[in-house]
Amino acid sequence: MELDNIEKLLEKYFEATTTVAEEETLRAYFSQESVATHLKQYSPLFQYFSKAKEERYTKQVPLKPRKNYYKWLSIAAVAVLSAGIYYGKTIHDRNEATYAYNETKKALSLLAENFGKGTEKMAYLNEFEETKQKIYNEN
């Protein structure tokens, strides 16, 4: 009966449907000296798990405190990004103001040039007025 039960448990074990208690039963069976001959091939598998469970790592692991560089790196990235946005906006505004100043300067120089032409024409008109006054005063 026990052998039949072990074979069923092995089948369930390889289908990955056993419980922890059933696996413990299998480990206990295969750690004995009297294992059925047709099941001896599985004996090293379960004996390995029993031995591996008892293994311990005894060497001391030196633990160094980790430095959190990511925190400082993110702070530096935010600082660089903020400075870039601030100075980029300042330079953009300055370039925009310079562009507006140059365009205004061009427009005013064009206006001054046209006013100069108008003043020249006014000189002719002034001479015409003086001549007209002379003619009217003589009559």
Rank of each mutant, 00 (worst) to 15 (best):
residue 3 L to F: 01
residue 3 L to Y: 02
residue 4 D to T: 07
residue 5 N to L: 06
residue 5 N to T: 06
residue 5 N to D: 06
residue 7 E to D: 05
residue 7 E to V: 08
residue 8 K to A: 05
residue 9 L to A: 05
residue 10 L to Q: 08
residue 10 L to R: 10
residue 11 E to D: 13
residue 12 K to F: 10
residue 12 K to G: 02
residue 12 K to A: 14
residue 15 E to M: 12
residue 16 A to R: 15
residue 17 T to I: 13
residue 18 T to A: 01
residue 19 T to L: 04
residue 20 V to C: 02
residue 21 A to W: 00
residue 21 A to P: 00
residue 23 E to V: 14
residue 23 E to D: 15
residue 30 F to V: 08
residue 32 Q to V: 01
residue 33 E to Q: 12
residue 34 S to P: 00
residue 36 A to R: 03
residue 37 T to H: 11
residue 37 T to N: 12
residue 38 H to W: 03
residue 41 Q to A: 11
residue 42 Y to M: 04
residue 43 S to T: 15
residue 45 L to N: 02
residue 47 Q to N: 13
residue 47 Q to K: 14
residue 48 Y to T: 02
residue 54 E to I: 02
residue 54 E to Y: 01
residue 57 Y to R: 02
residue 58 T to L: 15
residue 59 K to D: 11
residue 60 Q to W: 05
residue 60 Q to K: 14
residue 62 P to K: 09
residue 66 R to S: 07
residue 66 R to V: 04
residue 67 K to L: 13
residue 69 Y to H: 10
residue 70 Y to P: 00
residue 71 K to L: 13
residue 71 K to T: 08
residue 72 W to Q: 08
residue 73 L to I: 06
residue 73 L to M: 06
residue 74 S to L: 10
residue 74 S to Y: 07
residue 76 A to Q: 02
residue 78 V to C: 11
residue 78 V to E: 03
residue 80 V to I: 13
residue 80 V to D: 01
residue 82 S to H: 00
residue 84 G to W: 04
residue 85 I to V: 13
residue 86 Y to N: 03
residue 86 Y to C: 08
residue 87 Y to A: 02
residue 88 G to W: 06
residue 92 H to Q: 04
residue 93 D to M: 10
residue 97 A to G: 00
residue 98 T to N: 11
residue 98 T to S: 11
residue 99 Y to P: 00
residue 100 A to V: 12
residue 101 Y to G: 02
residue 102 N to R: 09
residue 103 E to H: 06
residue 104 T to G: 09
residue 105 K to Q: 07
residue 108 L to T: 10
residue 108 L to A: 05
residue 117 K to S: 09
residue 118 G to I: 09
residue 120 E to M: 08
residue 121 K to Y: 07
residue 122 M to P: 00
residue 123 A to S: 10
residue 124 Y to D: 15
residue 124 Y to K: 14
residue 128 F to V: 08
residue 130 E to T: 15
residue 130 E to C: 04
residue 131 T to R: 14
residue 131 T to I: 08
residue 133 Q to G: 14
residue 133 Q to H: 06
residue 134 K to H: 07
residue 135 I to A: 14
residue 136 Y to F: 12
residue 136 Y to L: 15
residue 137 N to H: 03
residue 138 E to P: 00
residue 138 E to N: 13
residue 138 E to V: 13
residue 138 E to G: 05
